[in-house]
């Protein structure tokens, strides 16, 4: 009995390693297909549309509300120290460094990542991928590569929009409702938020999240069991894995960027 469970543990471990290996090989294949989107940029535009434009609404609305909540909460804490003037700094730093990239990545994983997984999984289940292969068209280059680069390009832009809308939301609440001084809000923000340290690092984070989220979504779809049940499981896994990996990678990146 004991050996049985040990053997099962070994099998699970081996299976996980195998999937990890397959995932990385797939990523290499996807990236090597970059020539395809140079030859047919239309494929890339269509995917930026699918991932970026269609996520615009949810990202914008979420950004607005997150910024407004930050304005409220931040005001109450800062007012206790008489430092309401720093509200702009607090809102902008939290958005640009953390919430913008992370929340956007989670939203995109839910909105676009799951759709990508389902789409690829369905293409696999309905033999469309095999069909392409039989037409001597490499489905990785033709189907996965444009989606990957579409996601990687769309993510930082979405995060920038999230942060910008959030700052404006914080401004409305802080300056408009709670009476923080208009000039202090912006000037403190500008003097404390550093372009390279904060904005550029935030964008780098978001680029990494773009890679992670689209890669996981595509791999889960491509590796799914080609049945209705298999695709639905893969879709759930795609969102869960993407969320966990984004949060984990965020910790590592934060430690690297702002650690010293």
């Amino acid at each position: 009995m004991r050996f049985e469970s040990l053997a099962r543990l070994g099998r699970v471990g081996l299976g996980a390693l195998e999937r990890l290996g397959r995932g990385h090989l797939l990523l290499v294949g996807i990236v090597l297909g970059v020539g395809e989107i140079l030859r047919r940029p239309g494929l890339l535009w269509a995917q930026i549309f699918n991932i970026g434009v269609l996520s615009l609404l949810i990202v914008g609305v979420s950004g607005l509300f997150v910024g407004m909540v930050l304005g409220l909460q931040g005001y109450y804490v800062l007012a206790q120290f008489g430092a309401e003037q720093s509200l702009g700094v607090m809102v902008a730093t939290s958005l640009v460094r953390e919430l913008g990239p992370v929340v956007t990545a989670l939203l995109v994983a839910g909105r676009a990542g799951s759709a990508l997984t389902a789409e690829i999984g369905l293409m696999k289940a309905t033999e469309q991928l095999s069909g392409l292969e039989m037409m001597a068209v490499d489905p990785i280059r033709r189907i996965l590569t444009p989606r990957f680069f579409g996601g990687v390009l769309a993510m930082p832009l979405l995060a920038a929009i999230f942060s910008a809308v959030g700052v404006i939301g914080g401004y409305f609440v802080g300056v408009g409702l709670l009476g923080v001084d208009d000039g202090a809000f912006w000037s403190q923000m500008q003097s404390k938020v550093d372009f390279e340290e904060d904005v550029v690092n935030g964008m780098i984070k978001s680029l990494v999240f773009g890679v992670v989220v689209t890669w996981i979504a595509l791999f889960q779809g491509y590796d799914s069991v080609p049945t209705a049940e298999g695709v639905s499981r893969a879709t759930t896994r795609s969102v869960v894995h993407a969320a966990l990996v984004v949060l984990g990678v965020d910790f590592v990146l934060t430690a690297l960027m702002f650690g010293d």
């Binding site: 293409m123 033999e127 469309q128 392409l132």
Partner: peptide, 15 residues
Amino acid sequence: RRRMGMLFQSGALLT
């Protein structure tokens, strides 16, 4: 494969 055509069970048309 360019010289082979295959007809899949589901048709496998690009939807």
